[in-house]
Amino acid sequence: MELLVASAIGVMTAGGIYLVLRLRTFPVILGISLLTYAVNVFLFSSGRLTIGAPPVLSDDVTTYTDPLPQALVLTAIVISFGMTAVAVMIGLGAFLGSDDDHIDDQPEPRETEGQP
């Protein structure tokens, strides 16, 4: 189980990094989303993996999984939605303004910037 989760984290991280390094806004946003999944699962796994023991108190259960990482990840998921939305909006605004969805400034003949 641990191996599955860890390798899933690794795969999502690798995919996320590769997509973040692309040249257009949309794949970069997808990459950020993948990285978000990876980070959330990683944070969640810091409570170690427990199967079938949700942190909902009950009189006839004695073992529970670690609730704290869950609480932290829960807000992280919601916040990451806000972050993704802002990133998408910025990318969209840039595209609508310049008809270009490159993530980097396109090289243009740059004046030698120096002090007078």
Binding site: L3, G10, T13, I17, F42, S45, L49, L68
Partner: peptide, 27 residues
Amino acid sequence: VAIAGGLAAFALAYHYMLRDAVSTPIS
């Protein structure tokens, strides 16, 4: 770079999950 990052995340997560917390968690 992506593979290096992925391997690093994998190794860290895997090692982490196989070890208990160093001190008692506040949980």
